[in-house]
Write a protein that binds this DNA or RNA. Structure first.
Lengths: 171, 171
DNA sequence: CTCCTGATGTCACTTGATGACATCACGATA
DNA sequence: TATCGTGATGTCATCAAGTGACATCAGGAG
């Protein structure tokens, strides 16, 4: 990440990353599938938080209620590292390749959420729609949160964004 | 596309594509930014359809009503090439790199729609949420449509998916 | 007839990424 | 203690994606 900030993502070669890490380029590729993956290694944690929240929601909870709980869990996981997230997001936003990777990670999260919903016997299409809607809220709220210079509380932002979305769709 | 079907996307080299097209590899890169872009050249049409529909919506229409009109327009554009879309989507779904590119194209569409909404004086965050929700509907409906072997009518599918989403969010 | 321009070809080069094989540290086990 | 895996790393060779620099060539404008 230091190198990506110093010289930009594209201008940084894998050889340089490897050198600074004290390993070989070949070894780098044994740890990361490609140059981009460095910035997305932590996404498994988020996925677990989302799916476990959905799985642990009360049996009576509606799909969107389960998604709302998942978003709270996500806010708890993400909300602790504002400075880090800003730095990381700055790198990603500056590079189309990285934005691609981020979007597919988000899509992976949506798919995981949809799977967790189907495990609760939510019908397939509804599960997909609820999960995708949840990810939209997550993205927008996170984007808002990251764009504020000072660390704020992510949880209320997430909840507000969700109610915003329902309000918009109802008109 | 023939080559991508014959040997798979990754196994196809740009040199082979260029040779079959009767040009040089260097020339290929003058027409397409990279190997993936071949499959996404037509996305500008869709973007225009979406933004023009939003711009042309009645001044009294709510943001979501404008988005609904845009989805109708998208259905009209996309709905005519079922066989082609199936073939193309089969290639994309089989390859993570292409799925990345598809997602970023969708994101571009969402950004364009959000911009068209802001031009109607919809506040920024609401515009983003409405546009992203619209793209979710577009994606899910298109996925449903493409997964049916026989050509069906995309427009009603798109409308049903939108009402499905609002119903899910309201619970 | 000449000049300009856009499209293409040629060449050289960098870099990301992968396969094959060697090596090395270290814990398990006879 | 000596030996034997085993996992992580290094080395080497190679391929393929892109890109920059320059040459060429066809066709239209004057």
């Amino acid at each position: 990440m230091d190198l990506y900030v110093e010289r930009g993502f594209e201008q940084t070669t894998v050889a340089e990353i490897a050198q600074r890490a004290g390993v070989t380029a070949r070894t780098f590729f044994r740890h990361y599938a490609d140059k981009r993956e460095v910035l997305f290694a932590g996404s498994a944690d988020l996925r677990n938080a989302l799916t476990q929240a959905i799985a642990g929601a009360p049996a009576t909870a509606s799909p969107m209620r389960a998604v709302a709980l998942a978003l709270d869990a996500a806010a708890a996981v993400l909300g602790r590292r504002h400075a880090f997230s800003r730095r990381r997001q700055g790198i990603i936003d500056a590079n189309p390749e990285l934005r691609e990777r981020e979007l597919i990670k988000m899509d992976t999260l949506a798919a995981a959420m949809a799977g967790a919903l189907r495990d609760r016997d939510v019908p397939g299409p509804a599960a997909t729609l609820a999960a995708e809607a949840g990810i939209v809220v997550l993205r927008v709220a996170f984007e808002r949160w990251v764009s504020t210079p000072h660390p704020t509380d992510l949880t209320p932002l997430m909840r507000e964004t969700l109610t915003d979305l329902t309000a918009i769709l109802d008109r």
